[in-house]
Design a protein around this nucleic acid. Structure first.
Length: 511
RNA sequence: GGUCCGUUCGUCUAGGGGUUAGGACACCAGAUUUUCAUUCUGGUAACACGGGUUCGAUUCCCGUACGGACUACCA
């Protein structure tokens, strides 16, 4: 078997779509599994869609996801340059070869003429209004014009494109690793533009030429490319490269949560989840799209989730490290049908990965959040907070967002809890408890518990009846981590202060 | 419209000529917990439809329906 060389070939038109990340991931998994090479090629042949910063963004995003590039833009390699805009002469050469061998031709039709042709065919009730073996004879191209005319047109600077001369009737087959044999009649393929008016190649030509030159063994890309794959096969054939043609792998699409169509940025916005790995700021509109990283997703979790979207190991294992994915991955177990995007599952993975971290690692997350709020917190306290919070969070930022009460006394109290649990008994216990705590020199969970037990016993009130009132007075909420530990963390003084405040503030309501 | 691709619980999926059609997420219930969460236990829930082939089809074949992709001098 030839060496595995795969490429991820995005175009720098904006943020890297999550579907692109999965495509890159599958490429990477195959490469690593076979000690192959992962190549990053930038397909920037459309100058009108070029977005500044997109290339750097893509590189950074892949890096964050743990997808390492062995060769290509940003790292270099034996087949440089890896940016298609810098390979123009190469494509021109092969386009010329195709023309010389009669497999391509010049076309001078203006956009208006092309539009008119389509309208004409549509009006005539023709099913496929294409530039093909039939219609090309009615257009202005080097097949219908004399050699002299063509030369004159080119010499006089008339804009032209180079089109592939697709054979009239031929069966084109390709063996896709996921889908098996796919067959299409050449009559269904139109004479695709290979070289555009600006001298740049289109995707079709550039892609085939580069894949051949870069000795790509597997073309792994989204299913949206399947319809044009036969065209690419034709190109390999015409260029004389059919023996070296890469294997095709067309991945199922990632669908919108409702299943109607492929996932787009629009849907992500609509459902409120990120679409890009990292936060992306559109340089033109200035629109900021928060990415997975900043939304609190761990790269390992996102990768794991993405890997399972369309692929399964055939076992019940769900959690996979990158190493394990490399080991277990196989296109045999990639589904044919598209997979709907389910952010809830992504969250579950994130929770799993977050929990697998040590307390010390989690402390770092908490400290980061606190730093952003300009709050300082000693390590011992941070560690205690993290320890009692760790089983309740899905995102690192939640240590702070759900634990603000560790740093600030509540100013409002949960209405539901107040109306149900704030009563005379609670007030009695809380004031006695507060006095008891005020006497204590130091407060830890055990002494807090002992004090509470003593107070409730003395007053003859079941502790269960007042726990929530105590909690709400300390944190403002009806739920949360272990109360005794909370008291230990915030300290005796703070406990007293907070209970006092609650008793005062809530007095009115009871009365 | 045309071409191509697809279709198992709500979602991701396993399976495969005879199974109680399995797992995970989500959801619901019970247990534990001072609360919420966690954890544990249990539960609801699927083979798109119609014809074949067959003793038997969810599984194989053919249609139909539905869904998707593509149909640019975009990738």
């Amino acid at each position: 078997m030839r060496p595995v060389r795969v490429r991820f070939a995005p175009s720098p038109t904006g943020g890297l779509h999550i579907g692109g990340v999965r495509t890159a991931l599958y490429n990477y998994l195959l490469a690593r599994q076979h000690q192959g090479t992962m190549i990053l090629r930038i397909e920037d042949t459309d100058q009108t869609r070029f977005v500044p910063g997109a290339e750097e963004y893509i590189i950074e995003s892949l890096k964050w996801a743990g997808i390492k590039i062995d060769e290509g833009v940003g790292v270099g390699g034996p087949h440089a340059p890896y940016r298609q805009s810098e390979r123009k002469p190469i494509y021109q050469k092969y386009a010329q070869q195709l023309i010389d061998e009669g497999n391509a031709y010049y076309a001078f039709d203006t956009p208006e003429e092309l539009e008119a042709m389509r309208e004409r065919l549509k009006a005539a009730g023709v099913d496929n209004y294409q530039y093909n073996s039939v219609t090309r004879m009615q257009m202005r191209n080097s097949l219908t014009l004399s050699e002299g005319e063509v030369k004159n047109l080119i010499a006089s600077g008339t804009p032209y494109v180079i089109r592939l001369k697709v054979p009239k009737k031929e069966e084109i087959r390709l063996n896709d690793i996921i889908r098996g044999w796919v067959m299409v009649y050449s009559s269904q393929i139109d004479d695709k533009v290979l070289m555009k008016g600006d001298g740049m190649p289109t995707y079709h030509l550039a892609n085939v030429v580069d894949d051949y030159l870069m000795k790509i063994s597997h073309v792994i890309r989204g299913e949206e490319w399947l319809p044009s794959a036969p065209l690419h096969v034709l190109l390999y054939r015409f260029l004389g490269w059919e023996q070296d043609m890469p294997q095709f792998v067309h991945l199922p699409l990632i669908l919108k949560p409702d299943g109607n169509g492929k996932l787009s940025k629009r849907d992500a916005d609509k459902y409120g989840f990120p679409i890009f790995p990292r936060t992306w700021t559109d340089p033109v509109s200035g629109t900021v799209s928060v990415g997975y990283k900043d939304a609190g997703y761990l790269p390992e979790a996102l990768v794991n989730f993405l890997a399972l979207l369309g692929w399964n190991p055939g076992t019940t294992q769900e959690i996979f490290s990158m190493e394990q994915l490399i080991e277990a991955f196989s296109f045999d177990r990639v589904n044919k049908a598209g997979a709907r995007f389910d952010i809830q599952k992504a969250q579950w993975f994130n929770q799993q990965y977050l929990r697998a971290k040590s307390d010390d690692e989690l402390v770092v997350y908490l400290q980061e959040s606190l730093k952003g709020e300009n709050i300082s917190c000693d390590e011992a306290k941070a560690k205690k907070i993290v320890t009692i919070m760790r089983d309740r969070v899905t995102f690192p930022g939640e240590f702070w967002s759900q634990g603000k009460f560790f740093f600030f006394a509540p100013t409002t109290f949960d209405e539901g809890v107040i109306s149900k649990k704030w009563n005379d008994e609670a007030v009695k216990v809380l004031s006695a408890f507060k006095d008891e705590i005020a006497k204590a020199a130091t407060l830890d969970a055990a002494t807090a518990k002992a004090a509470l037990e003593q107070v409730t016993a003395t007053l003859g009130i079941g502790s269960g009846k007042i726990m929530q009132a105590l909690r709400v007075s300390l944190t403002g909420a009806g739920g949360g981590p272990d109360l005794m530990m909370i008291m230990e963390i915030i300290g005796a003084q703070e406990v007293v202060k907070r209970i006092q405040y609650a008793l005062q503030t809530l007095k009115v309501k009871v009365a």
